[in-house]
């Protein structure tokens, strides 16, 4: 029974092309450990160097976004905070993907959605110039183009980004961002 359940969970992941999945407290140690595994995995697959670097870079930005912005944290009785999130990395139908999800305050959804819509609507040149503006501090982070992390993800995701929100309760929504290569 135990093995069946675990195997069934693994089959669900496999059917969705998910090679790596983590759900729980997202910490810097997790980032380093899973990041190294993903790098080795990409090497073993003999993925081209640029794609490997982009997948790793997007993984780092995604996980750091969860660490910084997840609205769901385990109260460990003081710092460090233990933010919750879910991560899935894999490939399906020829696309490599890096997805992350976490709770956000319902009040932040319109702003996040607008930021991501803006970013998704920009072409390569538009993303480049917004990136520079945000890096320079000409555009305050979180105003027009969200954090520099989202822009970096969009620039590296050769097949684009997808995002979605679903309400969880009155105060919060679940947010997910998927980057495709």
């Amino acid at each position: 029974m135990l093995a069946e359940e675990m195997y069934a969970l693994r089959q669900v992941l496999s059917r969705n092309g998910i090679g790596y999945c983590y759900s729980g407290c997202m910490t810097e140690e997790i980032l380093l450990g899973i990041g190294n595994a993903i790098r080795r995995h990409m090497q073993a697959r003999e993925a081209d160097a640029k794609t490997s670097r982009s997948v790793f870079a997007v993984f780092v930005e995604q996980v750091q976004n969860v660490i910084r912005y997840s609205a769901e944290k385990l109260d460990g009785g003081g710092p460090p905070e233990m933010p919750f999130g879910i991560l899935a990395v894999g490939d399906l139908d020829g696309d490599i993907f890096v997805s992350c999800g976490n709770l956000v305050a319902a009040a932040d959804v319109p702003r996040l959605r607008a930021n991501l819509e803006t970013i998704r609507g920009l072409d390569k040149q538009g993303l480049k110039s917004l990136h520079k503006d945000v890096l320079r501090g000409d555009v305050p982070e979180g105003s027009k183009g969200a954090g520099v992390g989202f822009i970096d993800i969009a620039r590296r995701a050769t097949r684009g980004i997808e995002f979605d929100f679903t309400p969880v309760d009155e105060a919060s929504s679940f947010f997910t961002l998927k980057a495709l290569f």
């Binding site: 870079a57 930005e61 520099v148 992390g149």
Partner: peptide, 9 residues
């Protein structure tokens, strides 16, 4: 070899 977006800043 690699730097993240906050390092870019």
């Amino acid at each position: 070899i690699y730097f993240n977006s906050s390092s870019a800043k």
